[in-house]
Simulated assay, not measured.
Amino acid sequence: MRDDPSLRSRPIAVGGSSEQRGVISTCNYEARHFGVRSAMSSIAAKKLCPDLIILPHRMEAYREASVSMRHIFYQYTDLVEPLSLDEAYLDVSDSEYCGGSATRIAEQIRQRVYDELKLTVSAGVAPNKFLAKVASDWNKPNGLFVITPNAVDSFVLRLPVSKIFGVGKATNTRLAEINIKTCADLRRFSIFELKQRFGQLGVRLYELCRGIDNREVSPSRRRKSLSVENTFPQDLRDLASCLNRLPELLQQLASRLRRIDDDYVVVKIFVKIKFADFTQTTIERSGSTLTPSEFQSLCCDAYARKESPVRLLGVGVRFVDLREDQPFYQLDLFE
């Protein structure tokens, strides 16, 4: 939209072609009004919005804009934790800019990004990462929302539990079954009750519904995994077809692994399958050898879970990062 003004005010998306089983990566707000969203098949998106314009990816342009934005961020603080090409946490607690005001820093960053890149950004200002993320989504698009320390409790009490990080569709349904819709409802339950119902997520629910998030902004984000996957123009009809596609995926994976530095140690391998009905499964196994036979075995096990046509096949590895403070790994006892 920035580079081609004729696209403004029209529903557009970035993704694969609807004629080749493409998937939507993202879309503008005009398209979202029709129900189009990321991860939706391009065919489904066109059904919801027949006038939708689907454009191909321009990764170099996105990277260039991302690097330029980060250069602006780093002028205000060294504590920048990138989440993706277009999102990052900034800790400005000790920043001397704008008189130390996080709100004024956010306003200045937004203005500079627009002046220098002609892009609009939304920002959230809050005492911790959880609330800053929620706040950044509050006044989209092109908005700013501030949660001051004194306003945390009143804000969180009214917050829908669906806004809590880690609460997806399934967990939200489970919470609704016990009449939990807001953080105020969630506070009725003790940490022991929540942990019993939801495991370790229950502990996070207990903390986040009170606005507690002690995670620090981590300037260095290291990989935990690496994978390659392919969505096929036509479904793979059987297991043999899946196995025939593995060598090309493994070749791509090996090529990408050669670019990873020696501080990463492979500890698990995995295979991911998405079936024609969009259900998916992933099977992983402890090990550091990337032999074709190992991936073939995992593929057979994954396919056996449904034995139906496959639209997407992926392979990958999980790492231990030797540069972390505690580079240990808990092996499975019975493998």
Rank of each mutant, 00 (worst) to 15 (best):
I43S: 09
R2L: 02
L194V: 08
L312A: 06
S218F: 01
C98N: 13
F334M: 12
L131H: 11
Y329K: 09
L253P: 04
E87M: 03
R204G: 05
I269D: 06
P56W: 06
V320W: 05
R174L: 13
T281H: 05
R21Y: 15
S17I: 12
S42E: 02
D277Y: 00
L55P: 03
K133F: 03
E207T: 00
F198K: 00
R187I: 07
T279W: 02
N214C: 14
L7H: 09
E207M: 00
A61P: 03
H57N: 10
L249Y: 13
T282S: 04
G35P: 06
C242S: 10
E324D: 10
I109F: 14
N139G: 03
N244A: 09
D137P: 06
L246M: 03
V92S: 14
E207H: 00
S84P: 08
L298D: 04
P160I: 05
L194D: 06
R245W: 13
G16R: 00
H71T: 03
R215Q: 15
L226M: 07
F328H: 11
W138P: 07
Y74K: 10
Y76W: 12
W138K: 11
S17C: 04
R311L: 11
G143F: 15
E81R: 07
S25T: 14
Y62F: 02
G16N: 02
R174D: 15
I269N: 05
Q108S: 11
V310Q: 01
R222C: 05
V14D: 05
D235H: 00
V267M: 08
L250F: 06
L186I: 04
G202E: 04
S9H: 13
A302T: 00
V67L: 14
L312D: 09
E307V: 15
R323F: 05
D78N: 09
D153P: 12
R318D: 01
R259D: 09
R187V: 01
Q200S: 12
Q20T: 13
Y74I: 10
L246N: 09
G314F: 08
F319L: 01
I43Y: 13
Q196C: 12
L117W: 01
R305C: 14
C49I: 00
E284T: 05
L249P: 06
R323V: 03
E324T: 10
L85F: 02
S68L: 14
K181M: 12
R110F: 03
S68E: 02
S227H: 12
V228C: 02
E60M: 09
T120F: 00
Q20L: 15
L52D: 00
L331S: 02
A102Q: 15
L186T: 14
S220F: 11
P233S: 09
T291P: 09
D185S: 04
P127A: 01
F328I: 03
L298R: 08
Q251N: 10
P149I: 00
R58W: 07
F34D: 05
R188L: 11
L117V: 04
D185G: 12
A88G: 13
R311V: 15
F334T: 09
G199W: 11
V121S: 07
R245M: 11
Y114Q: 08
Q108W: 02
N244Q: 11
P82D: 10
I180S: 11
Y303R: 03
I191A: 11
